[in-house]
Amino acid sequence: MYAIATGKAPTPLAVQEVIDCAYPNWGCSGGDTCVALDWMTKAVYPLRDESDFCTIITNKTRGIKVFVKGLPEDRLLELLQSGPVVAAVDAKTWQNYQGGIIQYHCESHINHAVQIVGYDLTGPVPYYIVRNSWGTDFGHSGYLYIKVGDNLCGIAEEVSTVSVYL
């Protein structure tokens, strides 16, 4: 969202920092994307090149957060027109994903966070383009496709985004 707002590449963010520090969140043990994103809008975490405990430094001017629980998918498509969003999804069946568009056998028992970076409505099966965190060996170079409609994998159950302003 920063790159979209400024036209410049942002400073890389540490995913591990969010998993470890976003409080009150439980990271890989049941974290909540809305809580994590709320923490990110308030936290600045400078590099000190030394080991230490997680220390929160607040900055209230980093963005305007938008957290939505259980939105209709047409609203999700509208949000994606402004940039990527974070979604909490059910990824239990993804371990064997080889490619194609997920269209069936995906429930909505939320257990994983992903980034929805876009969509394609032009083909016979419209789909979301989802960036996963399991590395570039997963799926299509780290991405997978989920059919638009039917709230597959709980894709619209919990959506988070931040609008950046300068």
Rank of each mutant, 00 (worst) to 15 (best):
R62F: 02
I19F: 13
P46W: 04
T33E: 12
D74C: 01
P24F: 11
L77S: 00
Y45L: 11
K60A: 12
D49P: 00
G118L: 02
G154T: 03
C54K: 09
W94I: 03
V68N: 14
P126D: 07
K60F: 10
E158Y: 06
K42E: 14
K69W: 02
T11K: 13
M40T: 15
L76C: 01
I4C: 01
C28D: 14
V117T: 14
A91M: 08
Q16V: 05
V125H: 07
G100M: 06
K8M: 09
W94L: 15
C21S: 11
Q103H: 00
V85R: 07
E50W: 04
V85N: 06
D120R: 01
I155W: 05
K60S: 14
P84G: 10
I19D: 11
R75L: 12
G99F: 05
V114G: 04
V130H: 09
T33N: 13
T136I: 06
D52K: 15
G63P: 08
A88H: 13
W134S: 11
I4L: 11
G118N: 02
K65G: 12
S29P: 00
C153L: 03
E17Y: 10
E107R: 04
I102N: 00
G139V: 00
I146P: 03
G154R: 02
G142C: 01
M1D: 12
D32F: 07
L79D: 02
T161C: 08
S160W: 04
M40Q: 10
A113I: 06
I102Y: 00
N59D: 15
G142I: 01
V35H: 01
R75Y: 12
K92G: 04
G149T: 05
V68H: 13
A3C: 05
N96Q: 11
N132E: 07
Y45N: 15
A88N: 13
N59R: 10
N132R: 07
S141L: 05
S108W: 01
L76K: 01
F138S: 05
Y97N: 02
Y2T: 09
L77K: 03
A43Q: 14
Y143G: 01
V86M: 11
R131E: 13
E107V: 00
Y104D: 12
L166P: 05
G123F: 03
Y2R: 06
R62W: 00
V15N: 09
G70W: 02
L152D: 03
A9H: 09
G142K: 01
T93F: 02
